[in-house]
């Protein structure tokens, strides 16, 4: 079992993390030093193209905020440029999901206040928004990834209120995932298919940030660093 770190003074940890942080970003030293002064270095973007999620619960909330930004931007694009042959029912369902993701995104931004990471620049070049299968498969990827991410982040959260908030959101993401999967494969087991829910245990995945972020990064032009997140 990993040794507990609680007996290490917080300042020492901060300093240690800061030194590691500074080591890889030494080229932007001037910006970094400036942000250190107001103690925002954990979450201040060091350039327009990089954000660090930060540490502790704030880091986890920023992690969720990053994923919600990605989802909100995706569905905003889906509704702005609907795929060919979209039905009224599909448009209405996808509009509702878009709104849920925007609400999640804006909530995290408001909750994080000054600690919130900057807006991410997305990269959806791999998605053909004119094509139903391309859009819905991307939606499936995002929703399943969101569920796995929240499930994996739960035990990293220290504050019980934040844990509850994450719990309130993850089940909605799971509802989305099932609905999107049903649009792709109606009247099948896909909504909770063996490809995502382990048949022997009936469990959804739970993935660590170190697993989720590399999967999300191809859709985000901004580089997301997460070296200081709880593990």
């Amino acid at each position: 079992m990993e040794k507990t770190k609680t007996d290490r003074p917080a300042q020492a940890v901060d300093r240690r993390l800061f030194l590691r942080y500074a080591g890889v970003t030494i080229a932007t030293g001037a910006v970094l030093l400036e942000s250190c002064v107001d103690k925002d270095y954990m979450t201040t973007p060091i350039s327009a193209a990089t954000v660090d999620l930060g540490s502790g619960d704030v880091g986890i909330l920023n992690y969720a905020y990053a994923l919600e930004q990605l989802e909100a931007a995706f569905y905003t694009q889906v509704i702005a440029t609907p795929y060919s042959g979209i039905t009224d029912a599909e448009r209405s369902l996808l509009t509702e999901i878009r709104d849920h993701e925007i609400i999640h995104r804006d909530f995290f931004k408001a909750a994080l206040g000054n600690s919130a990471i900057a807006s991410l620049e997305v990269n959806f070049s791999s998605i053909n928004f004119a094509d139903r299968a391309s859009v819905l498969n991307a939606a499936k990827t995002f929703e399943d990834l969101g569920v796995a991410a929240y499930n994996g982040a739960g035990k990293l959260i220290k504050d019980v209120n934040y844990l509850l908030l994450a719990g309130k959101i993850v089940s909605v993401e799971a509802r989305h995932a099932a609905a999107i999967r049903s649009l792709l494969s109606p009247k099948t087991t896909s909504f909770a298919g063996d490809d995502v829910v382990t048949p022997a245990t009936g469990l959804d995945p739970a993935s660590a940030p170190s697993v989720v972020l590399p999967l999300a990064q191809p859709f985000v032009r901004t580089t997301i660093t997460a070296n200081n997140l709880p593990k």
Partner: peptide, 8 residues
């Protein structure tokens, strides 16, 4: 949590 999301 892994059960919870499956119920959802």
């Amino acid at each position: 949590l892994q059960i919870h999301s499956v119920e959802a």
